[in-house]
Structure formats: structure tokens, C-alpha cells
């Protein structure tokens, strides 16, 4: 995988939202993401984790053009996505799909599954009718639904089946990179297991690359090759999943992993892990490390000087003065 070409190169990406009060006065600027850099190689699954509000979705939305970034660059297959003419952007955008939570929720209830799956192909008009139908059948099979479903309406399907149709619809566009935003949130574990296995199978069958956004660390661990940990709009640690989960270096990564409930071995002492009595993510302003108010390892310079990501000997990146200091 590490020899595969980089298909996405994100450099110094920033997106700020300006919240306005009455009469258009600027009340507050939210730095949703700031200085975010990472690369994704073909065939890889990159996880993005972090608490809600840490900027995960904003990254995904900048990648597909829902948001225009305020700074930084996005290179997809070596060409910049920013500053493209609308038409060119749409052409590229087809290879880059953003899937928000439940892709089955937005299916048009008046259309049968067959038409739902054919429609994206009709819009892009590069297949004949017979070819289209063949493709739709193949993709329906890939998401493990029988042909008979082509004649059903969405409401005749279970929630899990609708989700499969939603994914099949995205696959008909033949994307190369899919950004999955919290695709397992709100699912029961048994259904979640089915969805995880489906993602794995689809990836192999369609030669896909994933960016997998989730606040569920256990799912990221089994699905991803690399993981980026976000805090307050910054990547604080990024590296191979095994490295990061087995030996987390950033204090925030450690806190996050500690808080995940786990079933221990029989006879082990049962206790609630996690965040101690450190206050939950209150808004922080000003200079310095954004995690510093919650950090047990802060140094005097953390309050004045924001740490930038640095590569450690094992290849991962960590943004922390306490880790970088010898």
C-alpha cells in the first residue's frame, strides 16, 4: 500500500465560518479546520476520528466542493481541485463521492430501485440503455441484493436494505475515492457488523479508496489502514492504525482511546476508563495548543506556542511539544 501512488494530497487546508449577530455584525469566527495536511494513497482507507465539532465533516465537505476552503490546496491525482471551472470540477467530482451517514435515507420514495440506480447513469449519459441495465444488475448483486429488488419501492425495503441501495447508487457513478461520514452512527452492533463487511467487500470489488470519518474508534481500528486524530480543527496525530492504537503518543489520542468501553478478560478488574475529571471540550481561544486546557502533560510553552505536526522516527506525525521534546 505504501508504494501505491498518492491520489489525494491535502496541504494546509483551512476553513473558517463567520457567525454573524443582528445587523450582520461578526459575532465570532469558528476555525472549523486549520492547517490540515494529509495524503491518501490509492487503495488505502484513512480514518478520521475526533469528538463532535472537531472538524471531521468540514474536511470531507471541502474535498467535494460543498465548502470552499479559505486556505490550502487539494490535489487529486496531481491536479488541484481548487480554482477549477464549474464544469471541470463536476467531472472530477464524480470520482470523489461524499456519503453522509445513511445513504438510504435520501432515496426518492416514488421511484423503484431499478430507476433509482439507473438515474445517475442517465444523467452522465455515457452508457447505452442495455449496458446501463447490465451495470445496475451487477452493482445490485455486489451489495448483495437479488434482482427482484429492482421492482420494489424504497418503503418496501428494511432500513438495512435501503442503505445498501443508497450505496449501490453511489457505486454506479464509478467513483475512485469515497468519503464515508459517520456511516455506522446510530446503528445497532449487529447491523453495524453487516455494514462494515459490506464496505470491505465493495472496496475489494470496485478498487476503491476510502476516507472513513467516524467518532467510533473501534470501527476505525478494524476498517482503516491509517488514522488521523482531530482536535479542535487540527490533526494532532496521524499514522498507521496499529501504531496509533497500540502506542498512542499525543495526550489527546491517549485520552480518547482510554475512554472507549472495552470488555476485558474474565477476572479482570472492571472499571470505567477515560477522561478523569478533565472538563469536556470547552471553547478555547487564543494562542497555544488548543488541547492545553484539558492536557495533563502541558508545559509552560503550550500556552503560548501552538505545536505543529512533526514526524517521529516511526513515520507518524504528532503535534505536541511534550512528545517532540527530547
Amino acid at each position: 500500500m505504501t508504494d501505491n501512488p498518492v491520489i489525494l494530497d491535502v496541504a494546509g487546508l483551512a476553513k473558517h465560518f463567520t457567525l454573524r449577530g443582528p445587523f450582520g455584525r461578526v459575532r465570532r469566527v469558528v476555525r472549523a479546520i486549520d492547517g490540515v495536511s494529509f495524503q491518501v494513497r490509492r487503495g488505502e482507507t484513512l480514518g478520521i476520528v475526533g469528538e463532535s465539532g472537531s472538524g471531521k465533516s468540514t474536511i470531507g465537505k471541502c474535498l467535494v466542493g460543498i465548502h470552499e476552503p479559505d486556505a490550502g490546496d487539494l490535489l487529486f491525482n496531481d491536479s488541484s481541485l481548487l480554482g477549477l471551472a464549474r464544469r471541470d470540477r463536476r467531472r472530477v467530482a464524480r470520482q470523489l463521492q461524499y456519503v453522509y451517514q445513511d445513504p438510504g435515507a435520501s432515496l426518492d420514495p416514488r421511484w423503484k430501485v431499478g430507476r433509482l440506480l439507473e438515474e445517475p447513469l442517465v444523467i452522465h449519459a455515457d452508457h447505452g440503455a442495455a449496458e446501463r441495465r447490465e451495470l445496475v444488475r451487477a452493482i445490485l448483486g455486489a451489495v448483495k441484493l437479488p434482482d427482484a429488488f429492482l421492482d420494489r419501492y424504497p418503503h418496501e425495503l428494511s432500513g438495512g436494505q435501503q442503505r445498501r441501495v443508497g450505496l449501490a447508487r453511489i457505486l454506479t457513478l464509478n467513483p475512485s475515492l469515497i468519503i464515508l461520514d459517520e456511516p455506522t452512527s446510530g446503528l445497532d452492533v449487529s447491523v453495524q457488523a453487516a455494514v462494515i463487511n459490506l464496505f470491505k467487500e465493495m472496496k475489494a470489488a470496485f478498487d476503491l479508496t476510502y476516507i472513513f470519518i467516524s467518532h467510533d474508534l473501534s470501527v476505525v481500528r478494524i476498517l482503516c489502514d491509517r488514522v488521523a486524530v482531530m482536535y479542535a480543527g487540527r490533526i494532532v496525530e496521524i499514522g498507521d492504525v496499529e501504531q496509533v492504537f497500540e502506542d498512542p503518543r499525543h495526550p489527546y489520542t491517549r485520552m480518547l482511546l482510554n475512554a472507549v468501553p472495552r470488555i476485558g478478560r474474565p477476572g479482570a478488574r472492571r472499571e470505567i476508563g477515560g477522561a478523569g475529571d478533565i472538563p469536556a471540550g470547552e471553547e478555547v481561544a487564543g494562542a497555544g495548543c488548543p488541547f492545553q486546557p484539558r492536557c495533563a502533560e502541558r508545559l509552560p510553552r503550550c500556552a503560548v506556542d501552538e505545536p505543529l505536526p512533526e514526524n517521529l522516527a516511526d513515520g507518524r506525525g504528532v503535534a505536541c511539544h511534550a512528545v517532540a521534546a527530547p
Binding site: 469528538e51 470505567i272 475529571d277 469536556a280
Partner: peptide
């Protein structure tokens, strides 16, 4: 809730 907050809430409840 996020896991960090969940852990705090569980501990608190206990």
C-alpha cells in the same frame, strides 16, 4: 455522546 463525555457520565453515575 462522544466517548470522552460518555466515560465521564458513566463514572459520575457510578
Amino acid at each position: 455522546l462522544d466517548v470522552t463525555i460518555q466515560a465521564q457520565i458513566l463514572r459520575l453515575l457510578r
